[in-house]
Nucleic acid binder design. Structure first.
Lengths: 126, 126
DNA sequence: CTTCTGTATTATATTAATTAATACAGTTAA
DNA sequence: TTAACTGTATTAATTAATATAATACAGAAG
Protein backbone atom coordinates (compact mmCIF):
# COMPACT_ATOMS: atom_id res chain seq x y z
CA UNK A 1 0.00 0.00 0.00
CA UNK A 2 2.80 2.37 0.81
CA UNK A 3 5.75 2.30 -1.50
CA UNK A 4 8.26 4.66 -3.03
CA UNK A 5 9.28 5.20 -6.58
CA UNK A 6 12.95 6.12 -6.68
CA UNK A 7 12.91 6.90 -10.37
CA UNK A 8 11.35 10.17 -9.29
CA UNK A 9 13.83 12.90 -8.34
CA UNK A 10 11.32 14.83 -6.31
CA UNK A 11 11.94 15.15 -2.58
CA UNK A 12 11.03 12.09 -0.56
CA UNK A 13 8.63 13.94 1.74
CA UNK A 14 6.74 15.20 -1.31
CA UNK A 15 6.44 11.79 -2.88
CA UNK A 16 5.17 10.40 0.40
CA UNK A 17 2.74 13.25 0.83
CA UNK A 18 1.31 12.76 -2.65
CA UNK A 19 0.94 9.03 -2.20
CA UNK A 20 -0.88 9.36 1.09
CA UNK A 21 -3.09 12.05 -0.39
CA UNK A 22 -3.91 9.77 -3.28
CA UNK A 23 -4.92 6.97 -0.92
CA UNK A 24 -7.20 9.45 0.81
CA UNK A 25 -8.93 10.96 -2.20
CA UNK A 26 -9.40 7.55 -3.80
CA UNK A 27 -11.12 6.38 -0.65
CA UNK A 28 -8.65 3.64 0.19
CA UNK A 29 -8.15 5.39 3.49
CA UNK A 30 -11.40 6.38 5.14
CA UNK A 31 -12.09 9.40 7.37
CA UNK A 32 -10.92 8.94 10.95
CA UNK A 33 -8.99 5.87 9.93
CA UNK A 34 -5.58 5.64 11.51
CA UNK A 35 -2.55 5.83 9.26
CA UNK A 36 0.89 4.42 10.15
CA UNK A 37 2.83 6.28 12.79
CA UNK A 38 5.79 8.40 11.84
CA UNK A 39 8.25 5.76 12.96
CA UNK A 40 6.31 2.84 11.53
CA UNK A 41 6.13 4.31 8.06
CA UNK A 42 9.74 5.43 8.27
CA UNK A 43 10.76 1.85 8.89
CA UNK A 44 8.46 0.52 6.18
CA UNK A 45 9.98 2.86 3.62
CA UNK A 46 13.49 2.86 5.11
CA UNK A 47 13.66 6.60 5.35
CA UNK A 48 14.29 8.92 8.24
CA UNK A 49 11.35 9.52 10.59
CA UNK A 50 11.73 13.25 10.06
CA UNK A 51 10.98 12.78 6.38
CA UNK A 52 7.65 11.20 7.30
CA UNK A 53 6.98 13.88 9.85
CA UNK A 54 7.49 16.52 7.21
CA UNK A 55 5.02 14.80 4.89
CA UNK A 56 2.46 14.44 7.67
CA UNK A 57 2.91 18.03 8.77
CA UNK A 58 2.23 19.25 5.23
CA UNK A 59 -0.77 16.96 4.89
CA UNK A 60 -2.15 18.35 8.13
CA UNK A 61 -1.57 21.93 6.94
CA UNK A 62 -3.55 21.13 3.81
CA UNK A 63 -6.29 19.61 5.92
CA UNK A 64 -6.04 16.00 4.80
CA UNK A 65 -5.03 14.43 8.10
CA UNK A 66 -5.02 15.34 11.75
CA UNK A 67 -2.59 14.22 14.42
CA UNK A 68 -3.06 13.68 18.11
CA UNK A 69 0.00 13.62 20.30
CA UNK A 70 0.77 10.17 21.62
CA UNK A 71 -2.20 8.69 19.81
CA UNK A 72 -1.44 8.82 16.14
CA UNK A 73 -2.37 10.39 12.83
CA UNK A 74 -5.76 10.02 11.20
CA UNK A 75 -7.55 10.84 7.98
CA UNK A 76 -9.40 14.15 8.32
CA UNK A 77 -13.11 14.42 7.86
CA UNK A 78 -13.73 16.23 4.60
CA UNK A 79 -17.29 17.35 5.18
CA UNK A 80 -16.50 19.68 8.02
CA UNK A 81 -18.23 23.03 8.03
CA UNK A 82 -15.06 25.15 8.04
CA UNK A 83 -13.53 26.01 4.67
CA UNK A 84 -10.79 23.66 3.54
CA UNK A 85 -7.39 25.36 3.46
CA UNK A 86 -6.36 23.63 0.26
CA UNK A 87 -9.40 24.65 -1.74
CA UNK A 88 -8.61 28.21 -2.74
CA UNK A 89 -5.12 27.20 -3.73
CA UNK A 90 -6.47 24.50 -6.02
CA UNK A 91 -8.95 26.87 -7.63
CA UNK A 92 -6.30 29.49 -8.38
CA UNK A 93 -4.01 26.89 -9.86
CA UNK A 94 -6.83 25.53 -11.97
CA UNK A 95 -7.65 28.99 -13.28
CA UNK A 96 -4.06 29.62 -14.29
CA UNK A 97 -3.93 26.32 -16.14
CA UNK A 98 -7.21 26.91 -17.90
CA UNK A 99 -6.06 30.33 -19.10
CA UNK A 100 -2.89 28.78 -20.44
CA UNK A 101 -4.78 25.97 -22.14
CA UNK A 102 -7.11 28.49 -23.71
CA UNK A 103 -4.13 30.34 -25.16
CA UNK A 104 -2.96 27.03 -26.60
CA UNK A 105 -6.27 26.70 -28.42
CA UNK A 106 -7.65 23.92 -26.28
CA UNK A 107 -11.40 23.88 -27.01
CA UNK A 108 -13.54 24.83 -24.02
CA UNK A 109 -15.83 21.90 -24.64
CA UNK A 110 -12.87 19.54 -24.28
CA UNK A 111 -12.15 20.89 -20.81
CA UNK A 112 -15.78 20.78 -19.74
CA UNK A 113 -16.05 17.19 -20.90
CA UNK A 114 -12.85 16.19 -19.10
CA UNK A 115 -14.23 17.52 -15.85
CA UNK A 116 -17.62 15.93 -16.30
CA UNK A 117 -15.91 12.60 -16.97
CA UNK A 118 -13.87 12.78 -13.77
CA UNK A 119 -16.92 13.52 -11.69
CA UNK A 120 -18.90 10.84 -13.44
CA UNK A 121 -16.41 8.08 -12.72
CA UNK A 122 -15.87 9.30 -9.18
CA UNK A 123 -12.23 10.31 -9.44
CA UNK A 124 -9.05 9.52 -11.29
CA UNK A 125 -7.74 6.20 -12.54
CA UNK A 126 -5.25 3.95 -10.72
CA UNK B 1 6.68 46.11 -19.17
CA UNK B 2 9.30 43.85 -17.66
CA UNK B 3 9.67 44.10 -13.95
CA UNK B 4 10.27 41.86 -10.97
CA UNK B 5 8.67 41.70 -7.57
CA UNK B 6 11.25 40.61 -5.07
CA UNK B 7 8.68 39.89 -2.42
CA UNK B 8 8.49 36.47 -4.01
CA UNK B 9 10.94 33.87 -2.72
CA UNK B 10 10.77 31.78 -5.84
CA UNK B 11 13.88 31.50 -8.01
CA UNK B 12 14.52 34.50 -10.23
CA UNK B 13 14.57 32.51 -13.44
CA UNK B 14 11.14 31.11 -12.56
CA UNK B 15 9.66 34.53 -11.81
CA UNK B 16 11.01 35.84 -15.09
CA UNK B 17 9.69 32.87 -16.98
CA UNK B 18 6.21 33.28 -15.50
CA UNK B 19 6.10 36.98 -16.23
CA UNK B 20 7.11 36.57 -19.85
CA UNK B 21 4.60 33.76 -20.21
CA UNK B 22 1.90 35.97 -18.80
CA UNK B 23 2.70 38.71 -21.31
CA UNK B 24 2.38 36.11 -24.04
CA UNK B 25 -0.89 34.49 -23.01
CA UNK B 26 -2.50 37.85 -22.32
CA UNK B 27 -1.60 38.96 -25.83
CA UNK B 28 0.65 41.83 -24.80
CA UNK B 29 3.38 40.13 -26.78
CA UNK B 30 2.24 38.96 -30.18
CA UNK B 31 3.42 35.91 -32.15
CA UNK B 32 6.74 36.43 -33.93
CA UNK B 33 7.29 39.61 -31.97
CA UNK B 34 10.84 40.00 -30.75
CA UNK B 35 11.50 39.99 -27.03
CA UNK B 36 14.54 41.58 -25.35
CA UNK B 37 17.83 39.82 -25.84
CA UNK B 38 19.38 37.87 -22.99
CA UNK B 39 21.85 40.63 -22.26
CA UNK B 40 19.33 43.45 -22.66
CA UNK B 41 16.85 41.98 -20.23
CA UNK B 42 19.62 41.08 -17.81
CA UNK B 43 20.64 44.71 -17.71
CA UNK B 44 17.05 45.93 -17.44
CA UNK B 45 16.41 43.70 -14.44
CA UNK B 46 19.93 43.93 -13.05
CA UNK B 47 20.37 40.19 -12.91
CA UNK B 48 22.98 37.94 -14.43
CA UNK B 49 22.55 37.09 -18.14
CA UNK B 50 22.69 33.39 -17.28
CA UNK B 51 19.54 33.81 -15.23
CA UNK B 52 17.71 35.19 -18.27
CA UNK B 53 19.12 32.48 -20.46
CA UNK B 54 17.74 29.89 -18.09
CA UNK B 55 14.27 31.46 -18.24
CA UNK B 56 14.36 31.69 -22.04
CA UNK B 57 15.59 28.11 -22.35
CA UNK B 58 12.68 26.87 -20.25
CA UNK B 59 10.20 28.99 -22.18
CA UNK B 60 11.51 27.53 -25.41
CA UNK B 61 11.25 24.00 -24.02
CA UNK B 62 7.61 24.69 -23.19
CA UNK B 63 7.06 26.06 -26.67
CA UNK B 64 6.28 29.67 -25.83
CA UNK B 65 9.23 31.29 -27.55
CA UNK B 66 11.80 30.38 -30.16
CA UNK B 67 15.34 31.63 -30.50
CA UNK B 68 17.48 32.13 -33.54
CA UNK B 69 21.20 32.33 -33.09
CA UNK B 70 22.52 35.81 -33.71
CA UNK B 71 19.04 37.14 -34.39
CA UNK B 72 17.12 37.09 -31.18
CA UNK B 73 14.25 35.45 -29.31
CA UNK B 74 10.67 35.65 -30.49
CA UNK B 75 7.17 34.73 -29.37
CA UNK B 76 6.23 31.33 -30.76
CA UNK B 77 3.27 30.88 -33.02
CA UNK B 78 0.60 29.04 -31.08
CA UNK B 79 -1.47 27.79 -33.97
CA UNK B 80 1.18 25.53 -35.36
CA UNK B 81 0.13 22.07 -36.45
CA UNK B 82 2.51 20.16 -34.20
CA UNK B 83 1.31 19.36 -30.69
CA UNK B 84 2.35 21.85 -28.05
CA UNK B 85 4.78 20.32 -25.55
CA UNK B 86 3.17 22.05 -22.61
CA UNK B 87 -0.34 20.87 -23.32
CA UNK B 88 -0.34 17.33 -21.98
CA UNK B 89 1.39 18.49 -18.84
CA UNK B 90 -1.30 21.09 -18.22
CA UNK B 91 -4.08 18.59 -18.80
CA UNK B 92 -2.64 16.06 -16.36
CA UNK B 93 -2.18 18.75 -13.74
CA UNK B 94 -5.73 19.95 -14.27
CA UNK B 95 -7.08 16.44 -13.87
CA UNK B 96 -5.25 15.93 -10.61
CA UNK B 97 -6.61 19.19 -9.26
CA UNK B 98 -10.15 18.43 -10.31
CA UNK B 99 -10.03 15.03 -8.62
CA UNK B 100 -8.81 16.68 -5.45
CA UNK B 101 -11.48 19.38 -5.62
CA UNK B 102 -14.11 16.72 -6.12
CA UNK B 103 -12.94 14.97 -2.96
CA UNK B 104 -13.27 18.30 -1.16
CA UNK B 105 -16.91 18.45 -2.22
CA UNK B 106 -16.52 21.24 -4.74
CA UNK B 107 -19.67 21.11 -6.89
CA UNK B 108 -19.01 20.15 -10.49
CA UNK B 109 -21.20 22.98 -11.72
CA UNK B 110 -18.96 25.45 -9.93
CA UNK B 111 -15.94 24.20 -11.86
CA UNK B 112 -17.74 24.20 -15.18
CA UNK B 113 -18.90 27.74 -14.59
CA UNK B 114 -15.41 28.91 -13.65
CA UNK B 115 -14.04 27.57 -16.91
CA UNK B 116 -16.82 29.01 -18.99
CA UNK B 117 -16.23 32.40 -17.39
CA UNK B 118 -12.52 32.35 -18.20
CA UNK B 119 -13.17 31.53 -21.83
CA UNK B 120 -15.92 34.10 -22.04
CA UNK B 121 -13.76 36.97 -20.85
CA UNK B 122 -10.84 35.79 -22.96
CA UNK B 123 -8.40 34.91 -20.22
CA UNK B 124 -7.47 35.86 -16.70
CA UNK B 125 -7.47 39.24 -15.04
CA UNK B 126 -4.47 41.60 -14.80
C1' DC C 1 35.61 44.68 -39.03
C1' DT C 2 32.68 45.77 -35.34
C1' DT C 3 28.77 44.83 -32.81
C1' DC C 4 25.07 42.59 -31.72
C1' DT C 5 22.71 37.97 -31.32
C1' DG C 6 22.14 32.99 -28.85
C1' DT C 7 24.69 29.36 -26.72
C1' DA C 8 27.98 26.81 -23.94
C1' DT C 9 31.41 26.02 -20.31
C1' DT C 10 33.61 26.35 -15.95
C1' DA C 11 34.12 28.11 -11.49
C1' DT C 12 32.51 29.99 -7.22
C1' DA C 13 29.66 31.75 -3.56
C1' DT C 14 25.48 31.64 -1.42
C1' DT C 15 21.18 29.99 -0.18
C1' DA C 16 17.72 26.44 0.31
C1' DA C 17 16.40 21.81 0.99
C1' DT C 18 17.03 17.46 2.95
C1' DT C 19 18.52 14.15 6.03
C1' DA C 20 20.12 12.70 10.50
C1' DA C 21 20.59 12.18 15.48
C1' DT C 22 18.51 13.38 19.83
C1' DA C 23 15.55 14.87 23.18
C1' DC C 24 11.00 16.03 25.08
C1' DA C 25 6.07 15.31 26.29
C1' DG C 26 1.83 12.92 26.43
C1' DT C 27 -1.00 8.45 26.14
C1' DT C 28 -1.81 3.69 26.90
C1' DA C 29 -1.53 -0.71 28.82
C1' DA C 30 0.75 -4.10 31.61
C1' DT D 1 4.81 3.00 38.15
C1' DT D 2 7.01 1.48 34.25
C1' DA D 3 7.69 0.35 29.55
C1' DA D 4 6.53 1.16 25.01
C1' DC D 5 4.44 3.60 21.97
C1' DT D 6 2.70 8.18 20.04
C1' DG D 7 3.61 13.25 17.90
C1' DT D 8 6.74 17.13 18.20
C1' DA D 9 10.85 20.16 18.52
C1' DT D 10 15.68 21.27 18.12
C1' DT D 11 20.13 21.21 16.35
C1' DA D 12 23.61 19.83 13.29
C1' DA D 13 25.40 18.01 9.08
C1' DT D 14 25.02 17.10 4.47
C1' DT D 15 23.42 17.65 -0.07
C1' DA D 16 21.09 20.12 -3.78
C1' DA D 17 19.68 24.20 -6.06
C1' DT D 18 20.42 28.82 -7.28
C1' DA D 19 22.70 32.88 -8.81
C1' DT D 20 26.59 35.23 -10.30
C1' DA D 21 30.78 35.73 -12.84
C1' DA D 22 34.14 35.45 -16.42
C1' DT D 23 34.96 33.67 -20.91
C1' DA D 24 34.51 31.72 -25.27
C1' DC D 25 32.40 30.44 -29.71
C1' DA D 26 29.50 30.94 -33.94
C1' DG D 27 26.45 33.28 -36.85
C1' DA D 28 24.05 37.63 -38.63
C1' DA D 29 23.84 42.55 -39.72
C1' DG D 30 25.50 46.99 -40.61
Amino acid sequence: MFQLDFKDRRPLHEQIKEQVKKLIITGVLQPDERIPSVRELAQMLTVNPNTIQRAYKDLEAEGFIYSIRAKGSFVANRDSTEPHPRREELMRELERNVAELMYLNEPVEQLLETIRAIYKKGGLNE
